[in-house]
Design a protein around this nucleic acid. Sequence first.
DNA 1: CCTTAACTTCACAAGTTTGTGAAAGTACCG
DNA 2: CGGTACTTTCACAAACTTGTGAAGTTAAGG
Lengths: 169, 169
Amino acid sequence: MNAGMTEPGEAVRDPESVSKFVESFAAQLVEAGMQRMPARVFAALLSSDSGALTSAELGEQLQVSPAAVSGAVRYLAQQHMVSREREPGSRRERYRVHSNQWYEAVTNRDAVLRRWEHTLREGVDSLGARTPAGRRLAETLAFFEFLEAELAAMMERWRVHREELFGEL
Amino acid sequence: MNAGMTEPGEAVRDPESVSKFVESFAAQLVEAGMQRMPARVFAALLSSDSGALTSAELGEQLQVSPAAVSGAVRYLAQQHMVSREREPGSRRERYRVHSNQWYEAVTNRDAVLRRWEHTLREGVDSLGARTPAGRRLAETLAFFEFLEAELAAMMERWRVHREELFGEL
DNA sequence: CCTTAACTTCACAAGTTTGTGAAAGTACCG
DNA sequence: CGGTACTTTCACAAACTTGTGAAGTTAAGG
């Protein structure tokens, strides 16, 4: 650890090791199903001090075209993982990650869960609720319903725990 | 609902509506990041009455080659979402889904979570724990650590709840 | 209003993924 | 041990994805 050999306490931002982190983190997001470019953009935002970068900054840091940044940001905004803000007095836009908002977005996937449940319900219907397969699906459905409730409660607990650790928003 | 127009209670397995379910469910697994073929194979297994199918049965139902089935099953077995069993007295293999085992496999992703945490810890190190970015990562890390503990506890509660709903294993 | 900085859209080329047929490998069974 | 019934591996073609440059659009500022 502390491979940069800097004295602890110093806030020297070594671009190379930052980039290394960005790429590792992005790789894990990709592994978890996110597309490559949104993952890289998101990781870059997450590890910026201001929490917000312009399109040009992102393009330079990641060595990609404005078009790529544009597409990635559109996706991230749709997923509520970043928000866009216009810099006043400039035609430049900045993309911001609200540190906690992003994992809230990932866990608050009510709509997604609801669709899974809907599909499963249809499955139980077409297989017949009393067939072995129907029962198997019904159990899966019950699990998802349970999950949905638990996730909400868990995020509530997290907010409390978070405040203990880091204080007010 | 009950689009098949069969009297309730009847266990008529309409191959077409089953296939429709298989494809919808598979599509959702794909959306969640699983590869296409493993998703289809898994959905087919999940909606089979026996909970187990041979390679030939899967190939026929899904209209794919034995090679495709082989690859898909290898992946699913690695993820512990199906298990393989040799039929005694035959050289045929069957692939089985243990109704509850599969979502246990999906939620028991300790190793995966651990790797995220490791990456985040490195990130905090290279950004500096007292920088804004470092603090942001530290919060994300704390969230993952919290998640890890919560997930385990949640699955414990689910097992109890499940037993209430469906009885013993 | 015109200029211009910045973002977005689009057609396409490069790269990657996916499923196939054919050949090779395994292991039951006589 | 040889035959055969499966399964797996492999090289490749088709289909899809991804990022680019260039043209198009928007709106800030003169």
